[in-house]
Design a protein around this nucleic acid. Structure first.
Lengths: 167, 167
DNA sequence: TATAATGCCTATTAATTCAATAGGCTTTCT
DNA sequence: AGAAAGCCTATTGAATTAATAGGCATTATA
């Protein structure tokens, strides 16, 4: 899975609309200015988000964009799939499952790809726009942590191959 | 993170060399034929793997390629980083950490990206070529599972946003 | 020692994707 | 009526991807 520049812009724009939720429609120009995004490119992105029923538009003078659903109901996974495609690192989940069934020689390889996509999906499905803007959902209990306080928005992820890798 | 066709070819070729480990050098042509890969493209890939000291070559007639280290010592993460770049879904881990520090408004967003990359890294760092070819390392204890036997090469991943997603 | 077999290396290419810009059309407010 | 917005399609330049091509260098062996 790869998040493109466009995907990042989409998420930033949606975070901005989340902050202004209930302030009515916001002009493209204002979103672009506040988030420092190229205006015409952003226009295309918002159009796409509108067609996917994630935002809605008000046309004409005094027009603009606003979220179509409450921020708690819009998940990162949905946005990234829309803009950048499947979450799997290769192909998509469906295809990987089929390859795991059929391609005896590479079964284990595709299974790893599927495991990676499941791990990503788990995180991205559980993170909403509200989480991104307000911090973690208060309903989620978190074990107390002594040092290295968890700054993540998410239930802490067990490290091991993470922390010290250079990427 | 995205695994390209080239990345897939690299992994397939290395799995093949793992199966023939201790059979000496294998010709590019044979790898290409057995794994059904474009021969000239594979040649470039193997060259890159050689420069990264993952495989070594024998030149001249009777030449070919073989793994340079035992299969248990070659991790998927290393191959994917080499061929397709950082494991993070956006930028790289270093950059994300820096953005989390500096970009107050988008901190939570970048933190999620980093969580995703850590989850991927954890899986890919713990999977070696030996695992891909032989199945899971015998040293890893696995909880017994009644139905839905775990076919993965890895310590089972907790689902939740995974299993039923369309991707 | 000639020759065939092989890897080494650089260049080129066609297709696709990415990031962005352009501009005319339509709708709505005032 | 005029201005201010979004709607929509087309275009573009740069980068990336997935290959292909072809000559050079090295080695085994007949």
């Amino acid at each position: 899975m790869k998040v493109s520049q466009k995907g990042l812009y989409a998420l930033q724009a949606l975070m901005m609309l989340t902050r202004r939720y209930s302030q009515g429609a916001i002009r493209i120009r204002d979103i672009a200015y506040e988030e420092n995004l190229p205006e015409k490119f952003l226009e295309l992105i918002l159009l796409e988000l509108k067609n996917a029923r994630i935002v809605e538009s008000v046309r004409g003078a005094k027009g603009g964009y606003q979220l179509r659903r409450p921020p708690e109901d819009i998940r990162m996974a949905e946005i990234i799939r829309l803009v950048d495609g499947p979450l799997a690192p290769f192909g998509d989940a469906e295809q990987l499952r089929s390859l795991i069934d059929r391609d005896e020689d590479h079964r284990a390889l595709y299974q790893v790809f599927l495991d990676v996509r499941d791990a990503a999906a788990k995180i991205l499905e559980n993170t909403t726009l509200a989480d991104l803007v307000n911090g973690p959902p208060t309903s989620v209990k978190r074990r107390s942590v002594k040092k290295n306080r968890n700054t993540s928005v998410l239930p802490m992820v067990v490290q091991g191959g993470g922390k010290e890798g250079h990427d």
